[in-house]
């Protein structure tokens, strides 16, 4: 199986979906000749032409509004928001509008669109190229939210997202784009939306995470093994609908749960996971639920020392695991 990076997996998957289905088209800023600022659509305008690879004006509300219109009228648009930090002008269209189409029309209309959004930090992006924005969308009934961490998951989940009949917010962590590589089959596989995956089996403690943090958690788990702590790692992969079953099964087994995320803590994915565990695993817990998140300040300082202090790291995860396992 070929080894590819996350960005290559994304690129190959969009290309193959566009080849297979003429209703799939892409729109966004600089996705044409430039190939996207992260090169997710490099070479596409030459391959598919400017009718299916639309370089839009700099206007996110219209990018998403136009995607909605064309989706409801039978196309399968993939909109690219250049950076998560710039999605805010489009929140009206996504949260306010796209999410309500199927429910609000009593099922007469559907909105099969995918919005790809590079997000996350650790790339010296400062306050406006580092944000985690998943919560706004994960809170919204009618949307699906996907946040893969590996090349294999990115490809299989993106294929499912494009083929799904509902609006899907597809979050790609910028730092994983080139850093993270893995085997990706060249066949047409899909991974179902809404299913978490156990990325490492363990007995003593469950760490629940997603996105870039998965990789730090997995590195820490190796370290913890040497310290005699067996860590099970749950990669959420889809943030809405969240996979309660996998979380509950794992935490019921280990009796201890640590949630690690790059986003700030208040009213976040970790709050939701924590609530699920309290609701369903109360009598199985051997220790309080623990969360490892950044400080509650705007993400994240541009200056390098402060940026690394801000983010959870392998070391911080290992010490949180040690602490939790000793309670």
């Amino acid at each position: 199986m070929p080894i590819v990076s996350v960005i290559e997996a994304v690129r190959d998957t969009i290309r193959s979906e566009m080849k297979q289905n003429p209703s799939v088209f892409i729109l966004g800023e600089d996705i044409g000749a430039r190939g996207g600022v992260f090169l997710a659509t490099d070479g596409f305008v030459e391959l598919f032409g400017p009718e299916r690879v639309i370089d839009t004006p700099l206007a996110e509300s219209s990018i998403c509004g136009i995607a909605i219109g064309s989706a409801v009228n039978g196309m399968r648009p993939i909109a690219e928001i250049q950076f998560a930090d710039f999605v805010w002008p489009a929140v009206n269209q996504i949260v306010g509008e796209a999410s309500k189409i199927r429910y609000g029309t009593y099922g007469k209309k559907i909105c099969p669109m995918t919005i790809r959004i590079p997000y996350g930090g650790g790339v010296r992006g400062g306050l406006y190229h580092s944000q985690s924005i998943e919560v706004i969308f994960s809170h919204t009934p009618g949307l699906k939210v996907v946040a893969p961490a590996t090349a294999y998951d990115a490809s299989g989940l993106l294929r499912s997202a494009i083929r799904d009949d509902d609006p899907v917010i597809f979050l790609e962590h910028k730092k994983t784009y080139r850093l993270v590589k893995g085997e990706v089959p060249s066949d047409d596989y899909t991974i179902p939306l809404g299913k978490a995956e156990i990325k490492r089996e363990g007995e003593d403690l469950t760490v629940i995470t997603y996105g870039l943090m998965l990789h730090y958690v997995l590195q820490s788990a190796v370290e913890c093994e040497k310290l005699g702590i067996s860590v099970e790692v749950v990669d959420l992969r889809t943030l809405r609908p969240i996979d309660r079953e996998t979380i509950v099964k794992s935490v019921s087994k280990t009796g201890r749960a640590l949630i690690v995320q790059e986003d700030t803590a208040a009213v976040s994915i970790s709050s939701e996971v924590s609530a699920i565990i309290s609701e369903e695993c109360f009598f199985d817990l051997d220790a309080p639920i623990m969360r490892l998140t950044p400080l509650e300040i705007p993400p994240m300082p541009f200056s390098p020392i402060q940026e690394s202090e801000y983010l959870p790291s392998k070391q911080k995860i290992t010490s949180a695991v040690s602490k939790l396992s000793s309670i």
């Binding site: 800023e29 600089d30 044409g32 000749a33 430039r34 600022v37 370089d55 839009t56 004006p57 700099l58």
Partner: peptide
């Protein structure tokens, strides 16, 4: 606007 020429804006 980055790569997008005026005629497409």
């Amino acid at each position: 606007a980055i790569s997008v020429p005026l005629s497409k804006q």
